[in-house]
């Protein structure tokens, strides 16, 4: 509040703002922490995943107790944030973000910040943000490298002005192959959070209009000017208003989870699964553990985590086909 460009007026605007934090892993937990402490009035935190011990190296909102409790990240984040700032509203949602629910998720929000770990969701966010005229901030990290870009529809270039297509699966490094260094997460998420604070506090003129590329290990930080990009590119999203990710024409319903040796399977039509009856069914198949958010089955070398919406995370493989087989074998599809 004492920072003059923000002032009391800016702080009041933050208090009245609503943000969607899309993904609450490494980037997302820094975003939630920073925006929650800054006094952004309403944080809607959506994440599909639950906590594992190796998340703690970079996912700053969580601790060993959260891992032991096996609770979903969105829930753990909300619990922690309520202790940090009791004066803001926190709305945790444990679900996968896809074209079927994104319009609900953005309902009433002033902007979206990127805490996701995959390209598919980012292009979906870009489609949605441009179509519904909502600012969003892209951020991504791998190894010691990170990038961020602020997108204000109608004003700045969008993600698809920058890059027409996402890299095909298997062609870029993942958290598995390249690892991820803790500090790059904090840098990129902090850049994103500051952009959000500028936009939400009514200081759009201060936004960063470059693509920021940080190569932390090689000591290089570049601000790439986006200059004429918006005018020069015949962008399918901004110019032609084509939104294939939002229309469900692009993107699969499976995802290999970054750094997890796991595959997530989800289904276009959400189901309503009784974890209790599933637990009963699986007794004797393997080791079953359960809480009110999820059920786990350890069998052979696999760890299956099943959510009430029918979604499952199959640990122990990175092969989508193998994961589908395991799902079909134990859950049934």
């Amino acid at each position: 509040m004492r920072y003059p460009p923000l002032g009391e007026r800016g702080q009041a605007k933050l208090q009245a703002s609503r943000v969607l934090i899309c993904g609450c892993g490494a980037l997302g937990s820094v975003l939630a922490n920073t925006l929650g402490r800054a006094g952004v009035g309403h944080l809607r935190i959506v994440d599909r995943d639950f906590l594992e011990l190796n998340n703690l190296q970079r996912q700053v909102l969580y601790d060993e107790e959260d891992v032991a409790a096996g609770i979903p990240k969105a829930i753990a984040a909300a619990d922690k944030l309520r202790k940090i700032n009791s004066q803001i509203d926190i709305e945790p949602l444990v679900t996968d973000v896809d074209h079927t629910n994104i319009e609900q998720l953005i309902d009433g929000v002033d902007m979206i910040v990127d805490g996701t770990d995959n390209f598919e969701t980012r292009f979906l966010l870009n489609d949605t943000a441009v179509k519904f005229d909502i600012p969003w901030v892209y951020g991504g990290c791998i190894g010691a490298e990170g990038q961020s870009m602020t997108i204000v529809p109608g004003d700045t270039p969008c993600l698809r002005c920058l890059m027409q297509e996402s890299p095909p699966p298997g062609t870029t490094p993942t958290c598995d192959t390249a690892g991820i260094l803790g500090p790059i997460i904090n840098i990129i998420a902090s850049l994103e959070a500051c952009e959000a604070i500028k936009i939400l506090s009514g200081n759009r003129d201060a936004i960063n209009r470059t693509l920021t590329v940080v190569e932390l290990w090689d000591n290089r930080i570049r601000q790439v000017k986006l200059g004429s990009l918006k005018e020069a590119v015949d962008c399918p999203t901004c110019k032609h208003r084509e939104f294939p990710w939002l229309a469900g024409e692009r993107g699969s319903h499976t995802a290999i989870l970054c750094g997890r040796n796991a595959v997530q399977l989800s289904f276009p039509e959400r189901q309503s699964l009784s974890l209790d009856s599933l637990a009963a069914k699986l007794q004797g198949v393997g080791t079953v553990t359960q809480n009110r958010f999820l059920l786990r089955l350890a069998v052979d070398d696999y760890l299956l985590t099943i959510f009430p919406d029918g979604r499952a995370i199959i640990g122990g493989t990175e092969e989508i086909a193998e994961a589908k087989t395991i799902y079909a074998k134990y859950i049934g599809s």
Binding site: G23, G25, A26, L27, G28, D114, G115, T116, D117, N118, F119, R122, G139, G140, C141, I142, E145, G146, Q147, M163, S166, P167, T172, T174, C175, A178, I180, I185, I188, L211, V213, R222, V224, C258, G259
Partner: peptide, 9 residues
């Protein structure tokens, strides 16, 4: 510089 998007996070 050739920039590819980085996708983790």
């Amino acid at each position: 510089e050739v920039v590819t998007l980085v996708g983790g996070g």
